[in-house]
Write a protein that binds this DNA or RNA. Sequence first.
RNA 1: GCCGAAGUGGCGGAACGGUAGACGCGCCGGUCUCAAAAACCGGUGGGGUUAAACCCGUGUGAGUUCGAAUCUCACCUUCGGCACCA
Length: 821
Amino acid sequence: MAIAKTIDTKFSHNNIEAKWRSMWEKNHTYKISDESKKERWYELTMYPYPSGDLHVGHWFAMTGADIHARYKRMNGYNVLHPMGFDAFGLNAENAAIQRGIHPHKWTMDNISRMKKQLDTLGPMYDWDRQVITCLPEYYKWNQWFFLQFLKNDLAYKGFAPVNWCPSCVTVLANEQVIDGICERCDTEVTHKDMDQWFLRITKYADELLDQESIDWPDRIKTMQTNWIGRSEGVEFEFDISHCNLEETKLKTFTTRIDTAFGVTFVVMAPEHPLASSITSKSELESVQNYISKSRQSTEIERLATDREKTGVFTGSYCINQLTGEQIPIFIGDYVLASYGTGVVMGVPAHDQRDFEFAKKYDLEIRVVIAEENYDQTEISEAYIGPGIQINSGNFDGLSNMQGKIEIANHIEKEKFGNKKVNYKMRDWLISRQRYWGTPIPIIYCNDCGAVPVPEEDLPVILPEDAEFLPTGESPLALHEEFVNVKCPDCNKPSKRETDTMDTFVDSSWYFLRYTSPKFSESAFDPSTAKLWNPVDQYTGGVEHAVMHLLYSRFFVKAIRDLGLIDYDEPFDRLFNQGTIIYKGHKMSKSRGNVIAPDEYVEAVGADVVRTYLMFIGPWEQGGEWNDSGINGAVRWLNKVWDLVHSNTSLLPNEISEDLVNQNNRIKNQTIKKVTEDIDKFKYNTGIASLMEFTNQLIELNSSKKITSDQLRDTIETLLLLISPIAPHISEELWEYIGNEFSVHQSEWPRYDETLIDDPTVTFIVQVNGRVRDKITLASDISENEAKNVALESPKIKPHISGKSLNRVIFVPGKLINLVVS
RNA sequence: GCCGAAGUGGCGGAACGGUAGACGCGCCGGUCUCAAAAACCGGUGGGGUUAAACCCGUGUGAGUUCGAAUCUCACCUUCGGCACCA
């Protein structure tokens, strides 16, 4: 795509940028030392997937993080701001299938291209710290963590109905299915029953709910809380001992045990293991038809909430142990197998879904919680509010809140069930039936079962010479040499696990690896990890709210319990930058609306692109790329360039004290504003005030209201303030004014609060709240004096003449409001 | 359906109880030029006026307040998240 016509920079941006990048490289300007005595700051931004080309969205994310990291560094911190690549993933494998390029080559080629592109941005990365997750030196530790998890009952293999993406040809974790659609390829997800590896994230459900100690956006915290979905209730058992099954009890889960006397039916999920066996002979055919039909329906169909509730009677009954009543058992697909016990007690009077089901199948609707003024007539919808227990045996007359407690206690005492906490979140399914990922270090032996690969045999290397067929068959499963091994325990011929790990395993601990990327004795050097972690400031997109961000929190808690680290949360602060859109849409290759930064960098330079991106709008919000908007950034940096290069020999040597103070005021105000804005990631307004500052200096220069010494000093401040945003040109100009290399190793300017306040100020004079005049007054003027001045104002007089002054509102240094009538 | 965020010039946005529209883009007029671009100067919410004054204006409607884009309530729209979780 050809870039829009831009105006030209007045400086040769390409030379300047190349010059300083090589200077920084040569001087190790951004090399990070673990030994520094300075306070440490870990500024992390989410590492990219090496998809091929860096687009403007990457630049947007990375520039914002780089600015903040540079700012922290100038404020005296030893800053770790590393970069790496999330290098395993399906795109690489699909490229192999479609174009015959090996995933390793595809990935590494992309990485080297993206690194070059990233370097043109002028970031303060120390590439010695880079992490590339597809290399054995990294994924070995995925395997090692897996083995530790296995030992500590945090990893297990389980047979379960799982999400299957027919396009990616693999299973997916629940977090990776969004509204029934595969998160990465937008294909409708189906179900399969498979034996898969899980990580026991649910063990940490309650701890993950505790977000007290982390400074994260509420939005993300809420999303995680909703995802975990804790609910307290009772597992209530119905007696089925008369059914001649192994099980004698049918377990249901409810949060409304107060309604247990209103149960008029029970519904089982179609996938429930007893669904067929509990069915009577006469109903078997219709039940099996129903089950197979519902199994064929897609996730999307099943999730539609406005769908009519359907079900089928099993011909069997269970006993409500509280009442001794016979309760009909149904199969219905509005009940989810994966939540609770997969069986629901139907209380149509107090649950809308059950109500609809009862209406459809003509089942009794028995009110057991009476709302205020309940008149015993038939109800037209379920009543879910509070009320008084009725038709509830000994519990009649209690409030349902009390009923909830006492019925639960009664059930526990009589051993009809137990109080129980349930979570919506499931364990993390990490098996993937694909090649380009970390091999799961397990060997299956006929005699010994699933045997972990001994730690000393790690890493289990992903074989290079795999065949990539478009059949969906995992290349590893076809790789004889890889598959056929000896059992580590008994030495008999055995088979390797051919599934690989979810790539979210890689990103769950990469922030630890950055602290010692070459350490070979373990996943990370405990001493340097302790030095840098947890991450002080993490930035990235909001799309990882319940995937990467949740998994990482789990990982940290899990390895803390293994004794490897001693803190609870990976990321102390989190900030989500927004998205850059173009032509009204998020940029994507398929839509053909991708802005490649390279051409703009060539045309106007990285500093301009950085500045423009940060100026578009609040970093938090993102915004629309506007082809002509970039001219504003060019003009500004041109002005800065001209200002610094302007001839100052004609400036006066002395000016009035008032002018000196005023010039100082502008400078100190700007330092304060820019400091506060960068601190809060409000780059757009920070840049705006720098533009204003530049305009003011140009004006002072041309009107000779500044001495050359003061101008030089002020320009120095300007360059320091610009340097995190436009690192190259500020370095060039820093050198030009005769300062020592490097502006990036200089201290952030301080402001003097006492120099900021203006001795005179424009007072707003209002009459009845409407602005009628503006008068310049001493900022510390008293109410009385201000009132007298205001009353004398020719602009005010007509508005108050003939009226009586009832009240005066006075805001010191700002405003006076005369209330008249 | 539930929860959350947001609605401000032609556009991106600023202000977040006290001058609405900072800063920038674009546009209009001027200077320079043979001409254009760039640069520079001026203008740029609507009405009104020779010019002022003045009136209207931050999604809609009410309210609180001396004063509301900002706080409260209701509604509309947009965007996110959740959504048969028992």
